[in-house]
Amino acid sequence: MIDSPRTAAAVTVPGIDGSGPGHWQTLLDADPAFLRIQPASWSHPERDDWIAALDRAVAVADRPVLVAHSLGTLAVAHWAARPDLPPVAGALLVAIPDPAGPAFPATAGSFREPPLTPLPFPSIVVASTNDPYDPAGAAAGFAEAWGSRFLDLGDVGHINTDAGYGEWPLATTLIDSLRRA
């Protein structure tokens, strides 16, 4: 729950279990211009709850950039398919998991079948060729369907702490480019 309204330039939307200590999203959240969504549960995600958490965060932000990782990217896609959205500057969608893939968490079933329509704001999809949560490379298809710029980083895993992504200056560069778009 967001305790008091504040103006945020970016809203972070982590994946299942949240982004732990040292994760690039957690490091970005140390900046007071970043605001993390607060769903009821990170470990037992429910799409409608995460969408409501995203609504609450965006409501106290000033045309933010959405900064999503993993399951959070699918939450953004579901959120963006609704009418009458508040204005956002864009979305950075990192390490989209394949909802039809073998590693997709069973507890995240409500996130399956994300909309395949263009997002109503600029977006950048960042992917890896060896992401264990996207072994078939579904991220490229999502980028095309959503009208997103696609950036393939090569063999870098899930673009998280386990893959060596703590400090990640490229994320800041991409967020800034969306803010200027």
Rank of each mutant, 00 (worst) to 15 (best):
T107L: 12
L170N: 09
F150C: 10
T107N: 03
G154C: 02
S110A: 09
W79Q: 02
H158R: 14
L174R: 13
I124E: 11
A68I: 08
I124F: 11
I175A: 12
G137T: 02
H158V: 07
D131G: 05
P132T: 07
V67Y: 09
P97K: 12
A89F: 00
D134S: 01
G157N: 03
F142D: 03
V125K: 07
S148N: 06
G147H: 03
G137A: 08
V126W: 11
P97F: 12
G90P: 04
L116N: 05
P132R: 10
H78Y: 09
A163H: 05
P122C: 06
A108N: 09
P135R: 09
D162H: 11
T107H: 01
F121G: 03
G147I: 00
A171G: 12
S110E: 11
F150V: 10
V94M: 09
A171M: 08
P102W: 06
P86G: 09
T73D: 13
P115H: 02
P99E: 08
A77Y: 14
D84C: 05
V126N: 06
R82P: 01
L153N: 08
P99A: 07
P115E: 08
D176S: 14
P87F: 01
L153T: 02
A106K: 12
S148C: 10
S148Q: 05
D98H: 13
P132E: 12
T117D: 11
A103K: 06
T172H: 08
E144T: 14
S70K: 12
P120Q: 00
H78K: 03
E144Q: 15
W79R: 00
F121P: 01
L85Y: 03
V94S: 09
G157C: 03
A81H: 05
L116T: 14
P135Y: 02
L92C: 06
P105L: 05
T172I: 13
A80Y: 00
P169V: 11
A68F: 10
G101M: 09
T129Q: 13
A75M: 07
E144K: 14
F150G: 04
D155N: 05
L93T: 13
A145Y: 00
P99K: 05
F121H: 00
S70N: 13
A108W: 12
W146C: 07
A75D: 11
L151G: 09
F142Q: 03
L170E: 15
L170G: 04
W79E: 06
L92Q: 07
F104H: 14
P102R: 13
S148M: 03
A103M: 12
T172Y: 04
A100F: 07
A143T: 08
V94D: 12
A91R: 06
L170H: 10
L93M: 14
A89G: 00
P105F: 11
L92W: 08
L153W: 05
H78G: 05
A103Y: 03
P99V: 03
P97L: 13
G147Y: 01
P122G: 06
A75H: 03
T117I: 14
A138D: 00
G141N: 12
F104E: 06
A140Q: 14
W79P: 01
S110H: 08
D176L: 09
R149Q: 14
Y165Q: 07
S128I: 00
E144V: 08
A77L: 14
A75G: 14
P102K: 10
P105E: 07
H78E: 10
V88C: 06
E144M: 09
L71I: 13
V76R: 03
G166F: 04
V88K: 00
W168I: 07
P83M: 04
P169G: 08
L85W: 01
S123A: 15
